[in-house]
Nucleic acid binder design. Structure first.
Lengths: 409, 409
DNA sequence: GGGCTTAATTAATGACGTGATTTAACCTCG
DNA sequence: CGAGGTTAAATCACGTCATTAATTAAGCCC
């Protein structure tokens, strides 16, 4: 049943129509730069006249700029259009388990400045994190010599469930955060528009916008690190569910009554294919540097060590089963395997994983799914977070307070 | 990334705007009859003037009718509006494993005629089914004395994956159908608009529109019969995935290397909680009347027979695990348990199932999910199928060929 | 440099939603 | 029973928008 509520609905006036048209035009241009008015007309279905009008407006605003022309063979040459990279900036924040990273991008997602703050593993207190983020915001703005009023927004990827609502709450299992009002806490130190989301989701966004997910409408981005998560994209949009906690693929059960998981349940996928679990099954004690330990395991298997091979074979099986579940339930056109451990494992095990997925999924759905590795690496959490304000901007969100100040001045 | 393609997009003209507004108004009215213009104005966010205009149009077309007025205490009384039930009719078809049922409804979903055709289990040939359906269409039209030109469309629920596309193809594992062009075959015998979908999905639609799912935006309708399926509803719309085969919950793996499933894989949920599997685990040979066999099992457990209790306890566990997976992945606000076996089992096991689901899902997501029994019974497949043309109608789809003929005459 | 070709803009038109205004419908109270 | 009051709904005037058709711009070619 279609939502026939007014809440999320943009009212049906002729002005909203314009905003929508402007928006589809911007989206089209953003992902297909540079391009001509004609191409935009074709891509959006708008008449050339309307494209002209909207583009003129956008140029006047400084959002779009002309950029040369294509050669013609006997006619007025088409003028190329592109986004004005410096119309505004966005900031992406990656709150990870070992560091806080703040990056400033222009509209074309070129990195303009970066600030890193390593975190003492024992020091995941909310205040510390908030301080680091605020510090990072000032730092990147100063570094790139960008005024705060030119920032469209700040996207923040955090580990844990992010409950969107009147007040954004973060439930971070890893940090022991319980209903932390992160937005409100940050609000004391900045006026910038804030967008907070799960790090797995922002990572997924990055792959969808710029990585292995480009062009897909239905996809699942699987993230395997120490733990396991996923970002589900349906109809091109992140599926968040009713309380924004969808995508907890890692705690899907693959063996009823199986290995214990840190979530308290048994037989979770994470208890088999998360890096911590893989190493545990290999007999390694936790707490070390998981990244090199996993590399060592892969190395051992490459050298033919039986134990290692066995663990990896099993890992491929469980992972394949987990992917098969996604295929059966969602019928995505693409599955992207990412996260530092996912990339490491996938590089070696992808064929075996694909096999296992095929064995455990229905033919029709499997055939129409491709399983690929992510292209961006785990660095992309901040990049993906920064796409949050970009999305709002392309959708024609009203300018931020800071922006209004600027356009008034 | 948002779809910025023109294909699915309704062009951005001012006329499309009107169609959209008309559509939200119709949806609002359809699910809240009777109601006044003022209420519609509030519900849709449209100005009273626009509501007046659109409603006048709808009344002129005969889609909507005035129906009395509410009492007033000193002012012009508000006029009540309702859909004109007899503006048009829809037909729902349930192609089941044991029968073909064809039902004709008016716009308010009152049944006006019905035709049943039992199927010889050995006779699931495509031609037979097509014949029965076509026969049924004529029969219900004759019975209800309705002219074909007044039929908005026919929805057909079939068991198996339905691949939407230029040519609708049905892959029916149960029937041994492989890429059957059902629509084309039916086309030889009727001009009515046809909408073919998986029976689980149509059943799910029925629950969402008129049953336990009313009002929910994110839900999963689980169907347990001999086999197991599900219909996933995200943002109020059935999630079909990239090739329309989403929702195959039954072949999700709950035990790697577990019981063999008829799909060829091992450890599928269906191999534990489908009626056939439950009976098998209870030591009953297949092929009998599963419905009474399952009832007998429940009866035995009620009398305290250990074997029976044990099988049911296990069933609740596996089912709960299966539901927990859905909760973790989708974070739905509601899960609805249906299908003949689901209802039978659920009636007795719901508390145990809820328990198991809680044990195996993350707290945040579980807390915001309610697990309920379906309200409509397995009879609702045809009803749900009939909502397919209703949806198109409410969305303002152009009139069918037959309708155009009518409105021209 | 005239004629041709194609791109982009402008003008004319029609449709729409909205707020303001008017008409309609009903009540209450004298 | 009719005037005044009250609320609903229809109508009007206006501004906005996208579209088509016509016009202008900007380059090619011989």
């Amino acid at each position: 049943m279609r939502e026939h509520v007014t809440s999320e609905r943009r009212r049906g006036t002729v002005r909203d129509l314009r905003r929508d048209n402007r928006s589809v035009l911007l989206w089209s241009l953003y992902f297909d730069q540079p391009c001509t008015r004609q191409e935009l007309s074709q891509a959006t279905g708008l008449s050339p006249a309307s494209v002209s009008n909207v583009v003129r407006e956008l140029i006047e605003e400084g959002v779009v700029a002309e950029a040369g022309a294509v050669d013609s063979d006997g006619g007025r040459p088409r003028v190329l259009l592109r986004m004005n990279r410096d119309y505004g900036y966005v900031i992406g924040v990656d709150v990870g388990e070992t560091r806080v990273r703040v990056e400033l991008f222009d509209l074309a997602m070129n990195e303009r400045a970066r600030a890193d703050y390593p975190l003492d593993p024992r020091e995941h207190g909310v205040t510390t994190i908030v301080e680091r983020i605020l510090e990072g915001l000032s730092a990147v703005l100063a570094d790139a010599d960008v005024d705060a009023s030119a920032v469209l927004g700040v996207g923040i990827g955090v580990p844990g469930v992010v409950e969107q609502g009147d007040e954004v709450l973060v439930h971070g299992q890893t940090y022991g955060w319980d209903a932390v009002p992160l937005e409100r806490l940050l609000r004391s130190g900045t006026d910038l528009p804030l967008h907070i989301d799960n790090g797995a989701n922002t990572m997924g966004r990055a792959e969808m916008w710029f990585g292995a997910g480009r062009g897909a409408q239905h996809a699942v981005v699987c993230l395997i690190g120490s733990g396991v998560g996923a970002s589900i994209i349906a109809h091109g949009r992140t599926h968040r569910g009713s309380t924004s906690s969808a995508g907890e693929w890692g705690h899907t059960t693959v063996v009823v009554g199986g290995r214990g998981c840190r979530c308290g349940a048994a037989g979770c996928l994470e208890a088999y294919v998360g890096a911590e679990a893989v190493l545990d099954r290999y007999g390694r004690t936790p707490g070390q540097d998981e990244e090199s330990a996993l590399a060592a395991l892969l190395d051992a298997a490459a050298r033919g060590v039986d134990d290692a091979t066995h663990v990896l074979d099993e890992t491929a099986l469980y992972l394949g089963v987990g992917l098969a579940d996604l295929i059966n339930l969602f019928n995505p056109e693409r599955i992207i395997l990412g996260g530092w451990a996912g990339l490491l494992l996938g590089e070696r095990l992808l064929p075996a994983i694909r096999d296992a997925a095929q064995q455990n999924s229905l033919k029709h759905a499997f055939t129409s799914t491709s399983i690929e590795l992510g292209r961006l690496g785990p660095e992309a959490v901040a990049l993906g977070a920064a796409t949050l304000p970009i999305e709002l901007f392309l959708n024609g969100a009203p300018l931020s307070v800071a922006d209004r100040r600027r356009s008034a001045g």
